[in-house]
Simulated assay, not measured.
Amino acid sequence: MVPETPKNTAAPLLPDRYPQLDLFICDVSDAILKDVMQHMEHPFYSLSKKPETRIRKYEHNGNRLEITPSVKGLATIYDKDILIYCISQIMAKLRRGEKVSRRVRINSHELLVFTNRGTAGKDYAALSEAIDRLAGTRISTNIRTGDEEQYDNFGLIDAASVRRKNGFDGRLLWCEVKISDWVFNAIRHNEVLTLHPDYFRLRKPLERRVYELARKHCGQQPEWKVSFPILLKKTGSQSQMKKFKQMLKGLEENNHLPDYEVSLEGNNVVFINRNTLSKKREVVTDSGALVLQEKTLETARKVAPGYDIYALKQEWLNHWTASGKPELKSVDAAFVGFCKFRATNSPIF
């Protein structure tokens, strides 16, 4: 059931501008959005729509993060759309068995459509400004990607080449960005999660950030409970607690957060899994579903680092079906063996 929209207020979600996404868009025709887990768990990005030029520091459970802006301001959670596009592109290529690198070519029109933005002149200008902020924002952290800690200073993107129509002030046609070793290392170790397509339809920066945290911490568990102070800290929001609670109350009333329901209980926020994640990823055959244990997926990630495990799961099922659906003594062992074979015979790095 779709929740009723209060009178005289905007709809909770932005309209879906491109309900029938062109097949060529972003080489990700099924619009599988991917983000690295570290960007979802920790507040790397500004939630302010105004330029934020002060150095920000964050520490939680031993994870330290210092973010230094350029004169143009900190990279924002909307600027992050560019990296989500890049990560999604790389993961799509890995699923197809193609070689990948830190350099990603971006067609600006495709990016705007992929992220559910408009395609007017101001939208191209905003995209150009976002690239500048991403390139100018510097990170110093001890947060691991893969098996590495990185204490030195690095950027969210290391470089960007831009092609414009009609000179320096012309419309951005395409660009090529070089993502940082830190982000690429997270991709290489398959430290990524899938985002709901409606992520780009969330109107408010804080709503996006809350969804990221729910997706990272609740995942496919039935629920995740967190206190107001901890959730506020992890969002990186500069809002006062009263305003923060009002925003969460809106999420609870409108019930529009993708994948999760929000319930406020005393001094805690409870995120309840809608079970849409498992429905999207369930592998079904004519004879029913082949169910893998969660620990099997973790083992598969270790024997096939860098691969999209859910894509491998589908490939394995297709192979099993094409082989006449032979009886499997152990579904879990068969899947892990398949992943090990693919990683050994078709390495992607």
Rank of each mutant, 00 (worst) to 15 (best):
Q221F: 10
K216H: 13
K204A: 03
E265C: 03
S263A: 07
R208E: 00
N185M: 11
F200G: 07
R215H: 08
V210F: 03
N254R: 06
Q246S: 15
H196C: 11
S227A: 10
L231D: 09
P258G: 14
L251N: 02
C218V: 14
A186H: 09
Q238I: 13
Y199L: 03
R201E: 05
P205G: 08
I230P: 05
R201H: 01
Q240L: 08
K216Q: 02
N268A: 10
Y211N: 05
V192Q: 00
P222A: 13
Q246M: 10
V226E: 06
Q240V: 14
K249D: 06
R203V: 05
R203I: 04
D198I: 11
L206P: 02
L231G: 11
T194Y: 05
T194E: 01
N190H: 03
L231H: 01
N267P: 07
R201P: 04
W224Q: 14
P258S: 09
K225E: 02
Y211W: 07
E265K: 05
R208H: 11
D198F: 00
L202F: 01
L195K: 04
D198Y: 15
P258L: 11
Q220N: 02
L251I: 05
V269K: 10
G250W: 06
E191D: 04
F200T: 03
E223F: 00
E252G: 01
N267T: 14
G219M: 04
L232I: 08
H189Y: 15
P205N: 03
H256N: 14
F200M: 05
N255A: 06
L248C: 13
S227V: 04
N267C: 05
G219K: 13
R209V: 10
L231I: 06
N268S: 07
I187Q: 06
T235A: 09
L248Q: 10
G250H: 10
I230R: 11
K245A: 06
R215Y: 05
E252K: 06
E252L: 07
L232T: 01
P222S: 14
A186P: 03
V262I: 09
K233W: 10
R201T: 03
E212N: 07
E207D: 12
K234T: 10
E261L: 12
K243V: 02
H189G: 09
K242G: 08
Q221I: 12
S239A: 15
R215E: 15
K249F: 11
F184R: 07
G266C: 08
P197H: 14
Y260W: 13
P222L: 04
K234Y: 13
L232R: 12
N190F: 04
V210P: 04
L231K: 11
S227M: 09
E252M: 11
K233H: 12
R201G: 06
I230N: 12
A214D: 10
E212C: 08
Y260E: 15
L231C: 02
L193K: 05
N255E: 07
L193M: 15
L231Y: 02
W224C: 13
L251E: 08
R201Y: 04
K225Y: 05
